[in-house]
Write a protein that binds this DNA or RNA. Structure first.
Length: 315
DNA sequence: CTATTAACCTGTGAGC
DNA sequence: TGCTCACAGGTTAATA
């Protein structure tokens, strides 16, 4: 499932192939992938055709390409092509003679460059992801952050409602902690709320909580500052580790732009490990197995020994 | 205002 | 073999 590290893998892969190239043609094979483009496929095509990709930028799980109306990129982009991978979305660079993927939804043809694939394809099985055009708006705190910050101080409007992610150099722990303490909810719910901290999905939420030795139902208004610091540090570490491994994937649904899978799933400590020993407990001679529980209509994995539930409501 | 839930989707695999 | 059903889960609109 694409969370921050997987989207960042895609961003890094994409940027050298598309930056500076002009979108010469747009083909929409399934309009459901444009659900979030309110004005429909024809408007979508009209917006993109003839524009030039200036950069590839990310915040949390949102990825966008600021577009210039002119090939020489004069002036700040006013629109961007937004991509969200949802559950199963893929952005693939493909040569024109590669047969269409079974779930190919949108094809962009790019101005020819020697040695580079002609097409950028959006492939999506479950159609939770999608493409759409959005405006670029000023931010009050210096742009989307990350290493692909261009142009500074502008952010895609459709990504402006989510908080900065823990890998963003401008991520503010103090802001996160003060907002967390005001919530009246469980810790995992808060971690998955993109408006509080972005980029974290079900897999990295469980992994972060495991690393920080925290229970998913811990009330957010009881969390001590040190606990919250440990949690954010854990999230940062697990996502950086995943990034270094090329991302997490359990099947062919999540792939990089070349169609290859990452291998971080071998490094998971909690997620998907029901019935298997907790590695941290095992290291100190304790016999404990990872449990799976239904929580928020999805599976939550944790260690009952090192991430204990409260016994009498006291944490 | 905040918190929670339903709905959107399709392929896969378990169980009968 | 073929059917049904649970499951995977990010985001947002709707509801409490």
């Amino acid at each position: 499932m694409p969370e921050l590290p997987e989207v960042e893998v895609v961003r890094r892969g994409l940027v050298s192939w598309v930056r500076g190239r002009t979108i010469t043609a747009v083909e929409v094979l399934d309009p459901r992938s444009l659900r979030r483009h309110a004005l429909g496929p024809e408007d979508f095509k009209g917006n993109l055709q003839g524009t030039t990709v200036v950069d590839v930028v990310r915040r949390g799980k949102f990825l966008w390409m600021p577009l210039s109306e002119t090939a020489d990129s004069v002036g700040a982009p006013s629109i961007a092509l937004m991509a969200h991978l949802g559950m199963s979305g893929q952005l693939l660079m493909q040569d024109g003679d590669v047969p269409d993927e079974k779930h190919l939804k949108v094809r962009l043809r790019l101005s020819p460059v020697a040695g580079m694939p002609e097409q950028l394809r959006f492939v999506d099985q479950r159609i939770f992801g999608g493409l759409f055009v959005t405006g670029m708006v000023p931010t009050d705190d210096g742009g989307p952050g990350g290493e692909a910050e261009s142009p500074a101080a502008l952010i895609a409007e459709e990504a402006s409602h989510i908080a900065r992610d823990p890998l963003d150099p401008a991520f503010s722990f103090d802001l996160f902690y003060s907002r967390l303490r005001k919530r009246k909810t469980g810790l995992k719910r808060a971690l998955l709320d993109q408006a509080l901290v972005s980029g974290i999905g079900n897999i990295y939420a469980d992994e972060s909580l495991w690393r920080a030795k925290l229970h998913y139902a811990r009330p957010t208004d009881t969390l001590r500052r040190g606990d919250a610091e440990r949690l954010i540090t854990s999230a940062r570490e697990v996502m950086l580790d995943a990034l270094a491994a090329g991302g997490t994937s359990f099947d062919s649904l999540y792939v990089n732009i070349n169609g290859a899978s990452g291998y971080f799933d071998r490094s998971l400590n909690a997620y998907g490990r029901e019935g298997k020993p907790c590695s941290r407990c095992a290291a100190v001679g304790i016999n404990s197995t990872i449990r799976r529980e239904q929580f928020m209509n999805r599976s939550s994995y944790s260690c009952p020994v090192c991430q204990p539930r409260p016994r009498n409501g006291r944490w």
